[in-house]
Design a binder for these strands. Structure first.
Length: 112
DNA sequence: GGGCTGACCTACT
DNA sequence: CAGTAGGCCAGCC
């Protein structure tokens, strides 16, 4: 009964909520992580119907571009939210900021 | 049942 | 690296 729930599946919710700030995941990646390979389209449908506020802006296409039409209000909103978290853009493509502890190491020393 | 749609993906050219 | 083609799955006529 591993079946995607109508409207919204809590497993998708958990996966999306677990994406740390400054990092992004593809729709397909989220689907796999939630246990539903090839359900990328359902992930997008779920995000729009989430009952709770989710960091939906951290979910992007597998090619590292946003899923909205460039210039649309949704696109601007998502890109702004991502930039606030330190994500950089090279035109339409996202330059994912590495988990980059390089700076942390300089400031705080090796974590280990 | 058949056909179209969508915040998609992979493979191939 | 960009563009195209075919595949995927649930929801709604």
């Amino acid at each position: 009964m591993n079946r995607f729930q109508d409207k919204f599946d809590p497993r998708v919710w958990e996966v999306v909520a677990s994406i740390p700030p400054g990092r992004v995941m593809g729709y397909g990646e989220v689907a796999r992580a939630a246990g539903f390979p090839r359900y990328s389209r359902m992930v997008s449908a779920s995000l729009g119907r989430s009952p709770e506020p989710l960091p939906w802006h951290r979910v992007v296409r597998s090619n590292r571009t946003l899923a909205f039409e460039p210039g649309s209000s949704a696109y601007r909103e998502q890109s702004q939210l991502l930039k606030q978290e330190g994500v950089r853009f090279d035109g339409l493509k996202i330059i994912e900021v590495e988990p980059d502890d390089s700076l942390d190491r300089i400031l705080w020393g090796p974590q280990d």
